[in-house]
């Protein structure tokens, strides 16, 4: 199974069927398959869990117990902009928890339709501690973060400016 490119979200059942139909069935491949679906759709739609259950002959209960166990997978679509702040020890020592709280407050002040465009989450160290504290804006890493820098990032994304460094 190749590493599927993350593409824009289209979770129509046809897309799902075709995509899952192409996954290689191997007994110890369930998590790779879930990765592929997650990468493809930005989450694991229920529809695809059902199809996967058929195709891999794995009970749906097993798929969900796995799906919800691992933080990497989601069962609901991800927001337009995902901000993942590192809460590893180094990043934490360099104030990432405060930045997280600031960002939460910042987002909370936005009007609901704008707030919904953001998904704020945490990760526990990505091994780039020299850049602590850091945030993933989508797949882009931004290091040596400050509350101000974070504010700029959010504002930049809001105004749809691509330049988030």
């Amino acid at each position: 199974m190749g590493e599927p490119e993350p593409t824009q979200q289209s979770s129509g059942s046809d897309a799902i069927c075709e995509f899952i139909g192409n996954l290689k069935v191997e007994n110890d491949n369930l998590i790779l398959a879930l990765h592929a679906i997650e990468n493809r759709f930005g989450y694991v739609p229920r529809q695809s869990a059902l199809l996967l259950s058929k195709r891999f002959s794995v009970p749906l209960a097993r798929i969900y117990e796995v799906l919800t166990f691992y933080h990497y997978f989601r069962t609901t679509p991800s927001a337009e902009h995902t901000l993942t702040i590192c809460l590893g020890t180094s990043c934490w020592l360099h104030g990432s928890e405060k930045i997280l709280r600031n960002s939460q407050n910042l987002l909370a002040e936005l009007p609901p339709e704008e707030r919904q465009r953001f998904g704020l989450s945490e990760v526990r160290c990505v091994g780039c501690c020299s850049l602590a504290p850091l945030v993933f804006a989508g797949k882009k890493v931004i290091g040596r973060l400050t509350p101000d820098k974070m504010k700029q990032i959010i504002e930049g994304l809001l105004s749809n400016r691509g330049d988030i460094s």
Partner: peptide, 10 residues
Amino acid sequence: VKIRLGAGAY
């Protein structure tokens, strides 16, 4: 060898 991935679980 085969390569298997974690998924965010320490």
